[in-house]
Each structure stands twice: as C-alpha cells, then as structure tokens.
Design a protein around this nucleic acid. Structure first.
Lengths: 267, 267
DNA sequence: TAGTGGTCTAGACCACTTC
DNA sequence: AAGTGGTCTAGACCACTAA
C-alpha cells in the first residue's frame, strides 16, 4: 500500500500549497530545479515535471535564464451587457471596449487595439449567421485588444458589404473605427442595432492563438459568437472573439421566459 | 539552424494532423508507445510526451492495458435561457434539466441525478448573493447530473431556510425535487421566480472535480453562478454549477441597453 | 498473466536570457 | 560567459486493465 501518487505530483502539490498559502508571494522565485535535485527531491526530469504541472495550473511561469516565478493572480475582467449601452457610443464617443476599461478603473491609451480590415470569403459560421451562402464576400475587421502590453483577446467582426461600403469601417486605420466605434458607424448608415445573441464555449487554443494571446501552457480560451440585429431582425454584425479563459467572466441578466403567457415577445 | 521545435512536438503534430484529417477514426487505436520506440521515433519518454500532449489537447485517451485511442468528439450541449421556461415546470412536470435533455433529443431516465440536501454555513459567495452574513445557515441541495453513465456537471443550489423549510426541497430524496423541480416548489410556497443573473468563468478544476466529472487531463471547467429573483428583487435561489468545459455552450439573447432612453426598466 | 501505459534515474547536451 | 530551464536517451521497474 505504498504511495500511489507519483513523486512529481507530491512535489507539485507541496509547492502549490505553499503558493496558495502565500508562503510564496507573487513574483517570488521558486528553488531552481538543480537545487532540488541536489536536495534529493528527485532527478531533474522528475522535478521538472512537478514544475511543469504547476505551470499548467497557472501558478507559476518558467523562463530560461530567469527561473521559475510565482505568477501574480490577474483579476477577472467582468463583461456585462451594459458594455453595449447605446448611450455610450451614440451620444458620447466611447467605444464598447473602452467602456469596459473605464468600468474597471483602468486608463485608456490609444493604439491598444490593432485593426485590420479586409474583404474575405465568408467562412461557414459567418455565412450562417448572416444568412449568406458560404464563400460570399464579407468585410472582416480583425482586432487584437491589449491591456497595456498584455494582449487579452481577439475580436473579428464580419459585415455584409452593402451595409458598410463607403463607411469608415472599410477604412483600414489602426484604432477604433472612428468616433463611437463600429456600432456608431452602422447607426449613421441607418442601421440601428436593437438586440443581440451571444454564444460562448471553451476550447483548446490553436498554436497561433497561444502565441498571439501569450497564453500560459495548458490555458484554454473562450470563444464568443456575437450576433447583432436591427429591430426588424436583420443581422448587421457577426463577431467572433477569442479570450484567454483565465482573464474574463461574463454576466447576463434576463427575465425568466414564459411561453404560456407572453404572446407578443417574439422569438 | 536545425529544427528548434522539440522532437515530441513534431511527433504529436504529425498524429494530431492525421486525427483531424480522419486518417485515424474515433475509437481507433494509435500505435503503441513501444512500437514507435522500435520504429526509431525516439525514446520511450519522448514518445510518451508526444502522446501526453495529444491527450492534453483532448484528441486521445490513454489507458493502461488498453492503449491510446482517438476520442469521439462529443457534441456540445447548448444551454439557452429557454430552458427555464415557466411553462415547462409550472404547467407540466418537466424539470429544467430534463427539458435540456428533451431539447437535445436524448431520452430521460430517472436517477441520472443524485441529490444531497444539507443545512450548511453559507460560504462567502453564497452569503453575498443572498445578502446574508457569512456563515449564516442555508440549505444546500447538491446534484451530480449525468448523461447515461457520463457525469456532465454538478449543480448546488442554496436556499434561505425561511423560504424552503417544510417543503419538498428539504426532503433529501434522490431524483428531482418532486414534480416540477425546485422552481415549482418555490412557486407553490408563494415565491414566483421572475428574473435571473448568470455569471460564467473558466478555471482549472480541483483534483476532486477532475475525478468526479471524469475530466481528461488538462481539461478546464466552467463555473456558473445563477442568482434567481422574485419580481420584488428577493433572491430565492443561488446556484453554483461546475461544467466540463468541452461539453457545453451557453447562449444568451438580450436587448441592447439604452440608459438614455429606458427610464422604467430598472436593474 | 500478458499487455500497455506511467514513473524514475543519471547524465549529456541544447537554447534562451541576463550580465 | 554564466545562469537556468528544456530535451533526449536507455533501461529498470511499477500499476492498471483485460482475458
């Protein structure tokens, strides 16, 4: 009945415990692998595995030449539907993503968003959302949103050409799509957004995403599909966001539906 | 300028490619580790690491004595707010979680849910949601929901004693909380639910959760906090769900808020 | 009991970061 | 150049699963 848990697991748990206890503070360095080997904690591979496990759990960061360091726990950024408030982008000149930042007490500085507009053939999900045949032409506006130097998520909006041709959206300038952002541009073009659907699911990142978002090894992403409609049900924007899973929380408020009572509530 | 990507990564990518291409079908077995060692793909540790990477990516399952097998891709279960439709639990005798299953075309059989009711001291999050002091007494109704033999999520509801004492909820019988489920019981007790807030975020599972939900190594969970209110704003239920991240998608429909226009909408 | 994955070691050598 | 993590090997032995 000897211990059945692997040696590396025990080691990892010991340090994990100490980190959670605060015996190791964020920023502090763990013993070097070679030290622990000499201290008789196991072979280099064994200790390395333990450290890798901690890294996968998001507790530490390993860098060559620097050492293994306790990660600061980054606070969650909460995203509620209030970030789409019309008052923000219609009347002022805040953009939704800036409103997020204001709400969380961070300062805004321009160029925290890189933008790239192109005309592409609609991928399946995009075509379906817009009710177009697959491969139809759409405009794609891709952004990488950063908080300071740290990238937090990507967001790619897809528009039907007839909705945006000739607007500022099609002008590929870095930064928000001019005053008020994309919804303001649509509004000025006669498309007032009215309701939305957001769908979320978690998945493993692609290698490209892991690099772009600077994900720690083992970290998942949350993919968000946002479909935006006008009052008559026309889809004017379909957007896909990829978020580092550990850095966000989503919040939704809604009425409990009652299909027996509500007759004029629609869909 | 020799290859800088590790050997194990290359190996993993090769198989990953073939799995995605369908050259390996779900259920099919990959070459055994020892075979690949003999074929000169590297040492046992190296091949093992490659396989481990594939497992962490959710592509294969490794089991001793059985081999390394391509995982069937389980379809996402979509959760929309329609699952709370009052008509389902007030007029019929469906329960919300059963409605999910009906919606996704699966059959229902009893005892797919284990239930455990107890009176506990409110943890911080629960106390905050209910507006109680931390450590106040609440009823906790914990369920482990399964789909066939596969556990999919846990769900723990917390109630204030004065709302549920003397109702069927407090009776710790396995299975749904009687006809219509928990919301029906509250309804019968004079608390009609009106609106909800759901908050979601992803995180690394605890060791216990990993075992309980039979998560594959490296898989994350999504934690859901659901707060249910009556029309006057009283919180009648606060529930915490822990879901295997790869098996669920959430969907929310909402109106674009307009704080400048809507005066009587309230929060 | 045979089959197959899992852990561990000792030591060599590589690769990135900091000085 | 020195420091620190990352990869790789060959082989021994352990642990779980299925027949």
């Amino acid at each position: 009945m000897a211990p059945k848990t692997p040696k590396w697991r025990d080691l990892a748990d010991r340090f994990g415990e100490q980190i959670r206890n605060g015996e190791y503070e964020p920023g502090q360095q763990l013993p070097q692998i070679r030290e622990l080997v000499e201290a008789g904690e196991g072979s280099k591979e064994t200790v390395h595995r333990a450290y890798k496990a901690l890294e996968a759990e998001g507790l530490v960061t390993m860098t060559r030449g620097h050492g293994t360091v306790v990660r600061p726990k980054s606070p969650l950024k909460r995203l509620g539907i209030a970030r789409y408030d019309k008052a923000k982008w219609r009347d002022g000149d805040e953009v939704a993503f800036i409103a997020d930042r204001v709400a969380s007490g961070r300062t805004y500085s321009r160029n925290e968003q890189t933008q790239n507009v192109s005309r592409v053939k609609a991928p399946a999900a995009v075509a379906e959302a817009h009710g177009l045949p697959e491969g139809a032409d759409v405009y794609a506006r891709a952004r990488l949103v950063k908080e300071g130097t740290q990238p937090t998520h990507t967001l790619t909006s897809y528009y039907r050409p007839e909705h945006v041709e000739g607007t500022r959206i099609v002008d590929p300038t870095p930064g928000p799509a001019g005053r008020g952002g994309g919804f303001r541009v649509l509004y000025d073009a006669g498309y007032e957004i009215d309701h939305m659907r957001e769908e979320l699911f978690a998945r493993v990142p692609t290698a490209e995403e892991a690099q772009l978002l600077q994900l720690s090894p083992g970290e998942w992403v949350v993919e968000l599909h946002r479909t935006t409609y006008t009052a008559d049900g026309t889809v004017v924007e379909f957007a896909v966001g990829v978020h580092a899973a550990s850095r966000f929380a989503w919040s939704y408020d809604f009425k409990v539906p009652d299909s027996a009572a509500t007759e004029g509530e629609s869909k």
